[in-house]
């Protein structure tokens, strides 16, 4: 059973004095259970609107939405106890301590107070748990938001930009936590992020949003493979001579800082052969891997 299903979902915002803005345009999104599913897209692409629709915070104009197999919003009360969410900035009472804020949420869901201590420990906030929320740094607020999302031991964890405001060590810890949760077999993490490296490091699957639509989805390696460049980076002792040989053989060659970049190479072994025939021997040959950033930029580029 998919953790998340969105079919033909449309949402248009009316704007005073302006033309209506289509935030979701016939969106199709399926997140299978288990693992970490990255949710990528430029600002305004509809990621947060999608998450808000999933959580029943906003109503779509059309389409079908299911969360953990239940229709949204009518079936949400049946499953919301298994869904943890951190959407944009953490929302807490500024005058209450971190611990009290979590205790109030735990009480709402009928969870034991020991669970509060567990999640505080998980996000390493126990030492500052009695400080007021308004005195927290941005990173601490974010940690508390993640702690709140974890409070329900969720089957589905929805995290919207969880690394915001965290220091490098915090970012590493959060990514480690997400990776761990994704591997435990019982939790599905839907990770919305603008940090491509984050998605690349922790996600198994990715969906890329642009202009309110999901324009690519699947395992990260497949999305990358679909956007493979076929470029090869080489290093040779005599760059100029090697470039001349390859150009003569019909390859497009451009210099790099310490070697040459040969574009659109169907079979990298051919380069080795061509150069060897002319007495040039390679010191290095590296296929240029397609990274998610390139794929993302190519996919989300505005149509001409």
């Amino acid at each position: 059973m998919p953790a998340v299903e969105m079919h033909a979902v449309t949402k248009t915002y009316a704007r005073r004095g302006k033309s209506p803005q289509k935030a979701l345009d016939d969106l199709e999104l399926v997140v299978e259970s288990g693992g970490v599913h990255g949710f990528l897209g430029p600002n305004g692409s509809g990621k947060t609107t999608s998450i808000r629709v999933l959580l029943g915070l906003i109503r779509p104009d059309a389409g079908e939405v299911r969360l953990l197999g239940r229709p949204v919003p009518s079936g949400l009360p049946d499953v919301i106890g298994s869904v943890g969410a951190l959407v944009e900035t953490p929302l807490f009472f500024p005058g209450f301590s971190g611990r009290r804020n979590l205790q109030l949420l735990a009480e709402t869901a009928g969870l034991p107070r020991t669970r509060v201590e567990e999640v505080l420990e998980t996000v390493e906030l126990r030492d500052r748990a009695d400080d007021r929320f308004k005195g927290y740094s941005l990173g601490m607020k974010q940690r508390l938001g993640i702690a709140a999302a974890l409070l329900k031991s969720p089957q589905l964890l929805i995290l919207d930009e969880p690394s915001n405001g965290l220091d490098p060590a915090g970012i590493r810890d959060v990514r480690e936590l997400i990776r761990r949760l994704g591997q435990d077999g019982s939790t599905t993490v839907l990770l919305s992020s603008h940090l491509l490296t984050e998605i690349e490091q922790v996600a198994d699957h990715v969906s890329i949003m642009a202009r309110g639509r999901c324009i690519a989805t699947g395992p990260v390696h497949k999305v990358l493979a679909g956007r493979s460049t076929g470029d090869v980076r080489i290093r040779v002792p005599d760059r100029a001579a090697a470039a001349a040989v390859l150009t003569a053989a019909g390859y497009a060659v451009s210099p790099t800082a310490d070697g040459l970049l040969v574009s659109a190479v169907p079979a990298p072994g051919e380069i080795t052969r061509v150069l060897a025939e002319h007495g040039h021997y390679l010191e290095e040959l590296t296929p240029v891997a397609a990274d998610l950033e390139s794929a993302f930029l190519a996919l989300t580029a505005e149509p001409a």
Binding site: P77, I80, L91, L105, T108
Partner: peptide, 13 residues
């Protein structure tokens, strides 16, 4: 504090 919205993550009705 927008806690009203956060509460809807816990009780959707």
């Amino acid at each position: 504090s927008r806690s009203m919205v956060a509460l809807l993550f816990w009780e959707t009705r």
